[in-house]
Design a protein around this nucleic acid. Structure first.
Lengths: 339, 339
DNA sequence: AAACTATGAGAAAACGTTTTCTGAATTAGG
DNA sequence: CCTAATTCAGAAAACGTTTTCTCATAGTTT
């Protein structure tokens, strides 16, 4: 059959021609902006329907100077935390008719700035979640990314809103919970060294040390994945700790699994805490005691900040801090009596 | 300070002016397309650098007639399966310099067609994952979405590539596995009735029934979430089945958790199988026996099909079927001897 | 040395919209 | 009944690029 013909996409011009009116009128009808003769409106509408006219978004964006799209940069799409954030942003933005372009830096922090820049050029704004990017680079990039909302990261610049989690407080709450249960020897399985949120946890633990000089606390290098936790069994056991603060739920689950394989009972012999309260933290055996981070809300808030930036920009940019909430579950229990 | 000034974004015109050349030359230099006098090139480059020129992607897209972006429509961003698919597409597309716009229909199937249409208008193509959309609607929508790649769904139209999973075979493999373990009374906890993949499973089980007339198989209505599984404990126990085929891993995990609360031992008293092999299926206690769906690969393949569609379109559109792979793990075991 | 061919820079058209501006018609007011 | 104000359709400019086309210049060839 004829395949070459009618190949060109139908544009506003075709509709105008068919309806016997001008481009301007078609545009007006389609956007319902100005009053236009009902007769013309009807003609345009039917012409558009007959031709199955779909307005071209790119042309529209160019004329309007906006894309109704924001970019979200995340370090790793496989990580439940960032998935949750993305989902929160996406749903909230959709409510206001905005779409989300994703940029997954695949944990390659050198890519982050490039991706963020590219996203910004295609979108009206960027939500940046780049825990590993160093401060100087971020500072330099900042102006060219605006409107920008930072997640899990703050900056000297007061103009850009940021949503951060009080990891320091959260880890102190978890440690206090363990102490309360009678644990006196703790270990912290730390995350990626350069990660901002890892630093925050370390600072929190420093404070904890000052407040609880009698408690022994060892810091172990680890990572942020299930595998990192799974591989840390030996070093954890080496410390003799009865309470382990894992960097996050993923690590805790890995550790849990590793200890299980060794026949070590959790929480009877060792108590474990996670961080984040990812959806599955509740479903491990035993369920994970953790510090819950309202990650969906954070994503939603990130959008709200962005919307403010895109709109009038009325109020001051806000710098919200979210307090993690302790969830006591089965993975922590009373310390075993020193035999 | 001066804030109103220098407000306008710097465009190609500014660069041309500063370098003392024409727009055309700037464009040529920026894209490195044609040979251009080294002296001019240098002038342009330094001008661009001084002004910190960032080419406007929308203008570029309009001129080029392409956005280097594809849309991905998923029913639920909270579902690990779709997360995996999205990630696969996103990473593969990024390799080829493409970006992904996400459209989360939040399980509202009436939104799917609208979202898909909107995504298409903003992008060069659409990867559609809409298990609930009815056949007629899909068929009607098809032409306006092209280039289109269907995931987990096929259509009469041979032109649009599709990536499907052989759920029928997978569920038969799982059932056979249970039979092999000595189970004679099975239950299938079905998913959303209208879901295409649920239908495929039911068909597979019909075949299984024919092949194994001696096995008793009850179909129970359920859902696709953890909660659905968790809430099905009673109806499952009511069937007296010793082997349960859950719609997917999420449902299986919910069921597992519910049975655990009731003090029912898995797999000693009841064996459970999932479907998909989501990342956490391996980390439950006991780990889930399941039919592994290579969801990341599917996403990657979806991109490859899309790339073909966007490119020369050389070969025939392919309709790939992925075979789930049985993963024997701890949640299934020998049937208890009838006392 | 003259004519012809590369080479490459600039002017202008194109992409598909929205919106300002212009001008004609219609209505209201004096 | 005529002028002024108002409404609304169409022409044209604008958004920011890329690319075709035109033309001048420099380089080759006879």
């Amino acid at each position: 059959m004829a395949r070459k013909a009618a190949n060109r996409r139908v544009g506003i011009t075709d509709v105008a021609q068919r309806a016997g009116v001008s481009l301007a009128s078609v545009s007006r009808v389609m956007n319902g902006n100005f009053s236009v003769d009902p007769d013309i409106a009807a003609r345009v509408r039917s012409a558009a329907a007959e031709l199955n006219y779909q307005p071209n978004a790119v042309g529209r964006s160019l004329a309007l100077g906006k894309t109704d799209t924001i970019g979200v940069v995340v370090p790793d799409l496989a990580n439940p935390t960032f998935q949750g954030m993305l989902r929160g942003v996406s749903r909230a933005a959709a409510q206001d008719g905005y779409r989300v372009l994703i940029a997954d830096s695949s944990e390659v922090s050198s890519e982050e700035s490039i991706l963020a820049g590219e996203a910004r050029r295609r979108c009206d704004g960027v939500v940046l979640c780049a825990p590993r990017m160093n401060e100087a680079e971020l500072e330099a990039l900042l102006p060219s990314l605006r409107p920008l909302v930072l997640v899990n990261r703050s900056t000297a610049d007061a103009e850009t809103p940021s949503l951060v989690v009080d990891y320091g407080q959260g880890v102190q709450d978890l440690a206090a919970h363990l102490v309360e249960l009678g644990h006196t020897t703790l270990a912290f399985l730390e995350g990626p060294e350069r990660s901002a949120s890892n630093q925050a946890r370390l600072q929190g633990l420093e404070k904890f040390r000052v407040d609880n000089p009698e408690i022994q606390l060892t810091v172990l290098s680890g990572g942020s994945s299930f595998e990192a936790g799974h591989g840390s069994v030996d070093s954890v056991l080496g410390t003799g700790a009865t309470g382990v603060l894992a960097f996050n739920d993923l690590v805790a689950m890995g550790l849990l699994s590793g200890l299980h394989e060794r026949g070590i009972d959790v929480p009877r012999q060792i108590s474990i805490t996670g961080f984040d309260d990812i959806p599955f933290a509740n479903y491990t055996t035993p369920p994970l005691t953790t510090a819950a981070v309202p990650i969906n809300d954070i994503g939603e808030q990130a959008w709200h900040e962005m919307r403010r930036l895109l709109g009038d920009g009325g109020d001051e940019p806000s710098h919200t801090t979210f307090q993690p909430e302790l969830r006591r579950r089965g993975s922590t229990g009373p310390a075993a009596r020193p035999q």
